[in-house]
């Protein structure tokens, strides 16, 4: 249970950073929608778990936030990527790709490769 949450949080943070990188400043709901659209059901049940992640990222200085108004004129908090965040995103993307590549190699490896 806890372990899954940890994995989720790590990947979620990366997703948030990437979303903000691609779409620019966005409110929480927007981020949630975007992640939902792309990741399918990962966030479809517990959208709320996004907010603690946002807070953590903000505390780390990767993102910043301010109040603004949304497209239909509602008050909403907008998050944007900071310079640190951009750096972090690059680093983590690299890490992630490396990890993914290694894992992928393992999955594609045939039995004879292990001998």
């Amino acid at each position: 249970m806890k372990e899954r949450a940890d994995v989720l949080q790590g990947t979620l943070a990366l997703m948030v950073l990437k979303t903000l990188d691609v779409l620019g400043p966005l409110h929480g709901y927007g981020i949630a929608r975007r992640i939902e659209q792309i990741s399918g059901d990962l966030l479809s049940v517990n959208q709320g778990t996004l907010y603690p992640v946002l807070l953590k990222l903000e505390q780390e200085g990767s993102i910043a936030s301010e109040w603004g108004s949304s497209e239909n004129n509602r008050k909403a908090r907008f998050y944007r990527l900071t310079r640190d965040g951009r750096k972090q995103l690059r680093a983590e993307t690299r890490d992630w790709e490396q990890t993914a590549a290694i894992i992928a190699r393992f999955f594609t490896a045939k039995a004879e490769h292990f001998q």
Binding site: V45, G48, Y51, P52, L55, Q59
Partner: peptide, 18 residues
């Protein structure tokens, strides 16, 4: 609300983060 999840748990999580 269902989609958002349990507000209390998230609040708690938020608090522990903060």
């Amino acid at each position: 609300r269902l989609k958002f999840g349990t507000v209390e748990a998230i609040r708690e999580d938020y608090r522990t983060q903060r």
